[in-house]
Structure formats: C-alpha cells, structure tokens
C-alpha cells in the first residue's frame, strides 16, 4: 500500500471512531512541489492527508497552538517523533493526549535535493509511536559532526568572519523561532523588557547575541529536523550552531535529544563528574 493511502486509512479510522479529535498532517499545497500542514478533523478531510518529501515543516510545532479537543493524532517522522518526545519530557504534552502515527522517513527535499539535515539523519524511524504507517526503513551510519569538526578546525578569525557574515543576513523575522517545536516560551527573551537585555533591531551585535542564545536554548533540545533552516528566508546557516550544541551535549553529557523519556535533559540536571576541560588552566 502506498504510504499516503496508509496514512489516510489510519486517520480515517481514528477520526471515525472518535479516538482522536484531529489528525495533524500535511496536504498537497497550491504550488507544485509544495505541501502544507493540514489538520484533518473528519474522516472526509482525512483523505487529503499526505506525507512526502515536500513536507518541510516539523508538525510537532503545531501541538502548542492547536485547539485541544480530545486526543490529538499526529503524523510523526523520525525527527518529529523525537520532538514530540521532547515536548512530553518538558511537560508540554501528556503522552496519553497524543496518538502518534509514526512514519519511517526518507528525508525531505529542498531545491530538488535532500535537505542537509536529512543527509546526516540517523533517526529516520520514529522512536515513539502508536502505529506505524509503513515498514521501518534502514538507518544510515554517518558522521553527524563532520561539518562541525571541519569548522572547529578553522582559526578563530575565520570562524568569526563566517559567523558575522551569516548573522549579517538575518532580518530578525523569527521564522526560525516559529518553525521550531522547541521554541514555545510565552515571551521570548528577545521580546522581553525590564530589563531588555538585548536590542530588538538588526544591529549586528544584537543579532549575533540572538543567534548565540537561540543555540544555547537549543542545547539538549534540538532534534536537527532542519525546519528552522528551511524556513529562513535569508538562508542563514542556523544548523551550524545547533549541531555544535548537539555535539557538545553528546560528548560531555552523553545525551541525545528526544530518544527516551526517562533520561533527564542535560540542562535540567547536573553531575559531579562533568568535564572541566574548558576552565581556566593554572
């Protein structure tokens, strides 16, 4: 069975039985090769549900805003399932309030090419689900940090000029923030006053700080779905920073985001044994 048919069948059944009030998924967009997020609330609407390589958003983002009437059904590819798990861990969602239709995923496309985050994806299959829409696919063995390692190899001057150049493209539209399921603070630090820590314009220093803090806030919480970078209208290389955080969190705290519910998130816990290699040398 075609995966879209499988999704539609499952969603229809869930909606028909009233097991869920809505199924969050995608439908075909109005432009060719673009899909759009779609909330199916009736068995009929469920027939529009699809999931393919043109579905570039992370659906878990909608779990924050969707009106909660009954259980929520959601399509979840590997990264999305990890996002859902992260949200459950962060008490934004109860496991029993969500029905996960897991989708083993072969990646999404950008400009006709596999997106950079998908190229190094090592969790194509959902880690958490109630039902699977298809057979699991084979995961790849890949060095996720090749790019980070290469960048680290550059001089601090080179890294700074790269960073400055990337940041200078940013127009502070916050599309990255809105696309991210882990960005759900009622008021973001950049919007707060009293004190207003950092300026709100696209002053280079302020924008740099925005990106640094954004990356810090993603530490141990980013699943590298790539939705932020796909949503950026200016093509800022956002994953450069979040991948670095992923690497540090893995190497220092042996933590991978969104893999299991029991393990405490690295910044929600501490250990007497942590590495102090970054501290001032005597």
């Amino acid at each position: 069975m075609n995966i879209n048919n499988s999704i539609q069948e499952k969603a229809k059944e869930l909606l028909a039985k009233n097991s869920v009030g809505v199924v969050v998924g995608f439908s075909k967009g109005t432009i060719n090769n673009k899909s759009t997020p779609f909330f199916a609330r009736t068995p009929v609407e469920a027939e529009k549900l699809i999931c393919d390589s043109n579905c570039t958003q992370n659906l878990a983002t909608y779990l924050h805003t969707i009106e909660r009437k009954g259980k929520i059904g959601i399509l979840a590819r590997g990264c999305e399932a990890r996002s859902v798990l992260t949200l459950i861990k962060e008490k934004q969602l109860n496991r029993e309030d969500v029905y996960i239709i897991g989708i083993p995923c072969q990646g999404v496309a950008e400009n006709g090419e596999l997106h950079s985050s998908c190229k190094i994806c090592t969790s194509k299959n959902p880690v958490i689900y109630d039902d699977l829409a298809s057979e699991k696919v084979e995961d790849q063995e890949v060095d996720r940090f090749e790019e980070v390692n290469l960048f680290e190899g550059q001089s601090s001057d080179e890294r700074w000029s790269f960073f400055e150049n990337e940041v200078s493209k940013c127009i502070r539209c916050y599309a990255c923030r809105n696309a991210c399921p882990s960005c759900y603070c009622p008021s973001c630090f950049v919007d707060q006053s009293q004190p207003s820590w950092f300026g709100k314009t696209n002053n280079l220093s302020d924008t740099s700080v925005f990106h640094i803090v954004r990356a810090l806030h993603m530490a141990g919480r980013c699943v590298d779905c790539g939705a932020c970078s796909r949503s950026c209208p200016m093509g800022v290389n956002l994953r450069k920073l979040t991948l670095k955080m992923e690497k540090e969190v893995l190497e220092r705290f042996n933590y991978t985001t969104g893999m299991n519910l029991e393990e405490a998130a690295p910044l929600a816990s501490f250990s007497a044994e942590d590495n102090e290699d970054y501290m001032r040398e005597e």
Partner: peptide, 12 residues
C-alpha cells in the same frame, strides 16, 4: 505569565 512549566528547574 512567562513560565512554560517545563520543569527544567525542578531537579536543579
């Protein structure tokens, strides 16, 4: 109004 009740602070 700012708290998301994520609970990250509890164990700290």
């Amino acid at each position: 109004d700012r708290c998301t009740s994520c609970g990250s602070c509890i164990n700290l």
